[in-house]
C-alpha cells in the first residue's frame, strides 16, 4: 500500500530534483533535440555567484527577511488565537474575518492587492494616505539599507517589499491563528484550572502550562513558517513587477518559464541553491523528529 505513493513520490519529486541538479551543469535552450545539451561544468554557478550576484544575494536576503517576518506573524497569530479562545463576544465574527484571507490563494491575494490596495493612482492605501502617492508596486527604492563590502547593490527593505510583507502577513496570521485555535481547544481544561488554583497569573499560565502543551502545534507552525518563507513565490510574482522584490522562487522561474526560457541551466542553478537551503531545513527537522520519537 505504501509502495505506490512512494514510487509516485520518487518519480514526481526526486527524479525531477535530480534532473534539475544535472541540468544546472548544462547549457540548453529548452528546445529539442536533447542532444544539443552541452556540459558547461560550474559555469552557471560561476555566473550566478559573480555576474548575477546582486540578484542572487538580494533574493537570499529577502528570503531571510521573510523567515523573520513570518515568525513574527506566527506569534501574532498565536496571540489572536489565544484571545479568541477566551470566548469573547463576537469571537466567531473575528475568526471569520481573520480566516477569510486563508481561503484565497496567495496569487489571488496578490492580484487583489495590486489593483485595489497598492495601485498608485487608484489603490485604497493611496486614497487614504494623507501624503503624496506612493508607488508600492513599482518602487524598489530602499526604506533602509546597508552596504556589504563584497556586494554591489545594497541590501535592504524596499517599499515594494514592505508592501509585500503586509499582504503576506494578512494571510499568514489567519492561517496560524486557525492552527492554534484548534490546538487550544484540545488543551485539557483541567490544566488551566490547576494552574489557576496554584495562583498562576495569566502570563505564567500561558508560558508554563498552555504553551508547552501546544508542542505538536508549535512544531508544525515552525515547519509551515519556514517552508512558506523559503518557497515564497506566488504573491511575490504577482506584486513585484516591474521593479520590485525577487526571492529565490522568482529567480528560478525567470530563467525557466516564459519566452525567455532559453537558459535552463541558469534557472536550474538557482533552483539547486534553493534546494540546498530547503534540504538544510528538512534535515534539521527530520533529525529533530526522530530524536523526539525515540524519547
Amino acid at each position: 500500500m505504501v509502495g505506490v505513493p512512494a514510487a509516485l513520490h520518487i518519480g514526481l519529486v526526486w527524479i525531477p530534483a535530480t534532473l534539475t541538479v544535472i541540468l544546472s551543469f548544462a547549457e540548453w535552450d529548452n528546445l529539442a533535440p536533447l542532444s544539443d545539451i552541452r556540459d558547461v561544468g560550474f559555469r552557471n554557478y560561476w555566473f550566478i555567484f559573480t555576474v548575477f550576484e546582486g540578484d542572487l544575494f538580494g533574493a537570499l536576503f529577502n528570503n531571510f527577511v521573510l523567515i523573520i517576518w513570518l515568525t513574527v506573524c506566527s506569534a501574532v497569530g498565536m496571540l489572536f488565537a489565544y484571545l479568541l479562545d477566551k470566548n469573547i463576544r463576537g469571537s466567531r465574527f473575528y475568526q471569520s474575518v481573520y480566516y477569510f484571507p486563508v481561503v484565497l490563494s496567495l496569487a489571488v491575494v496578490g492580484f487583489i492587492w495590486k489593483s485595489t490596495m497598492f495601485s498608485r493612482d487608484r489603490g485604497l492605501l493611496n486614497t487614504l494616505w494623507p501624503g503624496g502617492p506612493i508607488d508600492f508596486v513599482g518602487d524598489g527604492t530602499k526604506i533602509f539599507s546597508f552596504d556589504l563590502p563584497f556586494l554591489d547593490p545594497a541590501l535592504g527593505l524596499s517599499k515594494n517589499f514592505a508592501a509585500l510583507l503586509v499582504a503576506m502577513a494578512w494571510r499568514h496570521i489567519g492561517y496560524i491563528m486557525v492552527m492554534y485555535l484548534a490546538g487550544l481547544k484540545a488543551v485539557d481544561q483541567a490544566l488551566r484550572e490547576a494552574a489557576a488554583i496554584d495562583g498562576c497569573n495569566e502570563w505564567q499560565a500561558f508560558r508554563r502550562v498552555i504553551f508547552p502543551s501546544l508542542k505538536p502545534i508549535n512544531v508544525i507552525v515552525v515547519v509551515i513558517t519556514a517552508i512558506e518563507a523559503l518557497r515564497a513565490y506566488d504573491i511575490i510574482a504577482a506584486l513585484n513587477e516591474p521593479r520590485g522584490t525577487d526571492v529565490m522562487g522568482t529567480l528560478v522561474t525567470k530563467s525557466l518559464l516564459g519566452e525567455g526560457s532559453g537558459r535552463v541551466g541558469f534557472g536550474s542553478a538557482y533552483g539547486v541553491v534553493m534546494l540546498l537551503l530547503c534540504l538544510g531545513f528538512i534535515i534539521w527537522y527530520v533529525i529533530n523528529h526522530y530524536r523526539e520519537s525515540e524519547l
Binding site: 495601485s119 498608485r120 506612493i134 508607488d135 513599482g138
Partner: peptide, 11 residues
C-alpha cells in the same frame, strides 16, 4: 508622469 514603473499602460 511620476512613478512610471508601477503604472499600467491603460492607466
Amino acid at each position: 508622469q511620476p512613478d512610471a514603473n508601477g503604472r499600467t499602460w491603460q492607466d
